[in-house]
Write a protein that binds this DNA or RNA. Structure first.
Length: 895
RNA sequence: GGGCAAUUAGCUCAGCUGGUUCAGAGCGUCUGCCUUACAAGCAGAAUGUCAGCGGUUCAAAUCCGUUAUUGCCCACCA
């Protein structure tokens, strides 16, 4: 074995081996545990490669999957990717523009979609590769894509069923329009920016020429789409105008003054509001209340249309400037003020969102949301950390209808065909409705209809596609073959746990519950674990769109997959964020990769384990024989520790406390096993005496496997070649009888002697090679631990006894129930000792003061539990002992 | 504006049911070691008004209120 763990070849070797042995596939229903364990991956978008946030998410899933596989459950993890509608189309269109100076219209729908498929193939391959190198034990034969035939079938069935039930409807609604991508975008695909704008006040002239109403606006170009001006019904200034007619400047359309106490705040601005129902959400609502005309003044690309008269063809700022100029020229402009406002921008195109009236498809959410809320309120679905349930409930509680249509080319095309005449057909797989505008909407379950598919009709397909979350919402059951009645659904549905990020709780988690209840009549998972968000060194969320993503393959290359996984696991605490500063490093071949000191812990730990195994290898004893030689205190101690850790790990898993799991195993291996037990056994190791050491390491490999699958499998193959592979063999269970607090305490007390001597060594810089002696004043019998104490503290010999005189010129240290003296004639420095003793005394005395204060407090003695009071008294005695002994030493030294 | 969190050592973070076994870990720093598993290591050491203020309690890093700063989610006024 090499002195250092070299991850590269070993990772390759085991990826191949596990794959060949089909270890990632379910073991079948005949396996030991009756329960199944299944997970579906939150499908990464094919917009780009994965970053460390995904690595975290998938590490946690893999840890759970490997753990449960070792528990003997029939285990399945389904991998896959998401077509991510608008996001993917946007990146491909962007590249098309950059590289070929072409728009999608230059290519046409078919060609663009072809290009996106090519992009998807490239990134799906990359993502899959990333996941594999991370060690993700997915069943790769079941890999899905939200746009593949299996998922497509599920989408068609889900849509058809909802349509038939009347839960999907079409209507004209005000949507967030991306004028660059020519599509509606969801509320949650918009971010808001504060910009410095203006607040223009102008005259709204009365039609009869008798005067005007002053109206203020931040968006003067929308004047052209005004269909009313609203005032507060109780505003004395404007009461007289209610019902009167105004003329829209420039276009001279007649509109009326309405009274509305919802829209209008008397105190704000001029107290009068222009109403543009087709281009503002509040005005839209007002329009509905007053049955106002909805006048659209925009084209799809955001330019003003023919309704804008002379301004037709202008867009955005230009349109605004022109309108302002026009107002000024005609003497209508009263005032311009600076005004800060929020502007909505599209996540995808970064351009300003225009509220826009168009035909869209919606899912009616009220009933569906209610049921999904129930599942969480009743505890049927449990969030970890629990606080995220609130997130879910708040959002669903709004019960807002879900706009599912997107004016894109990449996605599931809506399975609706329009007909102007009423269909006369009776087929179970075809359903139709009459829309608000009189059209007939024909929905087909599986067959793609063409123009003449149904006799007597001229059919035209809706060009829109579905919101990408529509297919994502089906993911847990679509991946398992719904609507088919598949074996997978029977065995693995519902899934066991969903591991995901908190920012998609509403977008995705909630909708999966909704669709699963609707389609399967079951919840899709009972547990939701929300993993922390990875931030970069500046505290910004790591994401593809921020461009601050770090490729996990960089980290794997530099530190190994196990190190990456170990650190990811350690990061998962109850907290919601984890900062991960990275820096660049140039490689020998000239490439630059991201590295981070954070991962050294994992690498060092792997190396530690590797070297422990390397040391043990010549002395290894077979673990299969089962005979453990448990003789000494340290043997009992290490067994107790081992079983404590096994129990702790189980508990950590049950509560999704991943960092606790990592920390438990880390400290067991490094501190208990390596620094202590192995050091104790080192001197006398043999095949006969190593049974317990072998057993402990063997078990540690099991405990560590979910976090560090590669190195554990490799070490197992080296040390225990006849054993079953770690990935499949049984998870260790704790033997409570071997957990012994008394033994652990005894051991710690003796170890305190070792530490006391070492501390003296440190104080006087005594080289480890220099043997020293000690006198230990204690009532304990140290005979059976003599060798251990000598070896670990570098003593050539020591005396112990209850009433020993301490040697002259000795440094001292207080230990539980006694004192350690190290004679250091010629080395001892009185000043050093005196200073140390004084400090020790000072510390103990301040402690004593606080303990005394507490114990002399009557209410404390009266109210605190007896155990606590006894504990405090015990502490007081210990501290008094320290002071007493230290002062005795001090007196001698000062003589 | 509503909600959720965070603030603990120079850095990144633990600290679950309140009680000096709770003030910790890793990195970094300092001292001494190439001790025949490991220098990616070993041994020792230093470092904190647990953000501020107030409250509850016999007892607060921990519970409550409040202020400040930071992050995220949701909703947004012409």
């Amino acid at each position: 074995m090499e002195t250092r763990y070299n991850h590269k070849e070993i990772e390759e070797k085991w990826l191949k081996n596990w794959d060949e042995q089909k270890n990632f596939k379910p073991r079948g229903t005949q396996c030991a545990a009756s329960k199944h364990f299944s997970v579906v991956i939150p499908p990464p978008n094919v917009t780009g490669a994965l970053h460390l946030g995904h690595a975290l998410n998938n590490t946690i899933q893999d840890i759970l999957v490997r753990y449960n596989r070792k528990l003997g459950k029939n285990t399945l993890w389904i991998p896959g990717t998401d077509h991510a509608g608008i996001a993917t189309q946007a990146v491909v269109e962007k590249r098309l523009m950059q590289e070929e100076k072409k728009t999608r219209h230059d290519l046409g729908r078919e060609e663009l979609v072809k290009r996106i498929w090519e992009w998807k193939d490239e990134y799906e391959t990359r993502i899959t590769n990333q996941l594999k190198l991370l060690g993700s034990s997915c069943d790769w034969d079941k890999q899905r894509f939200t746009l593949d035939p299996i998922c497509t079938k599920a989408v068609r069935h889900a849509f058809f069923n909802l349509f038939k039930k009347g839960l999907i409807y079409r209507g004209k609604r005000l949507v967030n329009w991306d004028t660059h991508l020519h599509t509606a975008v969801a509320d949650d695909e918009i971010y808001h920016e504060t910009v410095k704008g203006h607040f223009w006040t102008f005259k709204y002239p009365l039609a009869d020429g008798s005067g005007y109403i002053p109206v203020a606006t931040t968006r003067p170009e929308t004047i052209l789409g005004d269909t009313a001006v609203a005032v507060h019904p109780e505003d004395e200034r404007y009461k007289q105008f209610i019902g009167k007619t105004l003329l829209v400047p420039f276009v001279n359309r007649e509109i009326s003054v309405i009274a509305d106490d919802i829209l209008v705040d008397k105190e704000f601005g001029t107290g009068s509001v222009k109403v543009t129902p087709a281009h503002d959400p509040n005005d839209y609502a007002t329009g509905l209340r007053h049955k106002l005309p909805m006048l659209n003044i925009l084209n799809e690309d955001g330019t003003l249309n023919e309704n804008a008269g002379e301004f037709k063809g202008l867009k955005g700022e230009k349109a605004r400037a022109a309108v302002v100029e026009g107002l000024e020229k005609s003497g209508l402009l009263l005032k311009v003020e600076d005004h800060e406002m929020q502007v909505g921008k599209s996540d995808r195109s970064k351009t300003i969102i225009e509220p826009y009236l168009s035909d869209q498809w919606f899912v009616k959410m009220d009933m569906l949301a209610e049921r999904a809320m129930q599942a969480v309120e009743s505890g049927e679905i449990k969030f970890t950390p629990a606080r995220y349930a609130k997130n879910y409930l708040n959002w669903l509680g709004e019960k807002r209808d879900w706009c599912i249509s997107r004016q894109l080319w990449w996605g599931h095309q809506i399975p609706i065909w329009y007909s102007s005449t009423r269909p006369n057909i009776n087929r179970p797989d075809i359903h139709y409705f009459q829309a608000e505008n009189g059209d007939w909407l024909v929905c087909s379950l599986e067959e793609d209809l063409d123009e003449n598919s149904i006799e007597g009709l001229k059919l035209v397909r809706d060009p829109d596609v579905l919101d990408t979350w529509f297919s994502s919402a089906l993911w847990p059951h679509s991946t398992m073959g719904w609507p088919g009645e598949t074996e997978d659904l029977k065995e693995f549905y519902p899934t066991s746990v969903l591991v995901t990020a908190r920012d998609i709780i509403s977008l995705w988690v909630a909708r999966m519950v909704v669709f699963s209840q609707e389609n399967m009549d079951k919840i899709p998972f009972s547990d939701v674990y929300i993993n922390p968000t990875i931030l970069d060194g500046n505290g910004r969320r790591m994401s593809k769109s921020h461009g601050n993503g770090v490729d996990p393959l960089d980290i794997i290359e530099k530190y190994g997959a196990d190190s990456l996984r170990f650190v990811m696991c350690s990061i998962c605490t109850e907290n919601q964020d984890a900062r991960l500063p990275v820096k660049k490093e140039k490689q020998e071949d000239g490439r630059e990769i991201n590295i981070s000191e954070k991962f050294e812990v994992g690498r060092n730990f792997g190396n530690k384990l590797w070297n422990a195994a390397r040391f043990l290898k010549p002395h290894i004893s077979s673990v299969e024989s089962g005979e453990l030689r448990v003789e000494s205190l340290e043997d009992k101690w290490v067994l107790s520790r081992l079983n404590t850790v096994i129990r702790g790990v189980r508990n950590a898993f049950e509560n999704y406390r991943f960092s606790e799991y990592a920390s438990l195993v880390y400290h067991f291996v490094w501190d208990d096993l390596c620094s202590r037990y192995l050091e104790i056994k080192k001197g006398e190791i043999s095949k006969e005496s190593s049974t317990l050491l072998s057993h402990s390491l063997y078990t540690a490999l099991d405990l560590l496997h979910p976090i560090m699958p590669f190195i554990t499998e490799e070490l197992n193959a080296i040390l225990f070649p006849n054993s079953e592979r770690v990935i499949l063999r049984e998870w260790p269970s704790a033997d409570e009888n071997l957990i012994n607090a008394e033994i652990e305490k005894q051991f710690e007390d003796i170890f305190a002697i070792v530490e006391a001597v070492r501390s003296v060594r440190g104080r006087y810089s005594i080289a480890p090679s220099q043997k020293i002696t000690a006198t230990i004043r204690t009532s304990a019998n140290l005979e059976s631990s003599r060798n251990m104490i000598k070896d670990l503290s570098g003593l050539s010999e020591f005396d112990f006894g209850e009433n020993l005189q301490h040697p002259a010129f000795s440094a001292s240290a207080v230990i539980p129930g006694g004192e350690v003296f190290v004679p250091l004639e010629g080395i001892l420095n009185k000043e050093t000792e005196i200073a140390r003793l004084k400090k020790e005394i000072e510390k103990a005395e301040s402690f004593i003061t606080s303990l005394n204060k507490k114990l002399s407090n009557e209410s404390f003695v009266k109210n605190a539990p007896v155990a606590v009071i006894d504990g405090e008294r015990q502490k007081l005695a210990t501290q008094k002992d320290i002071v007493e002994k230290s002062q005795a030493m001090l007196r001698e030294l000062e003589q």
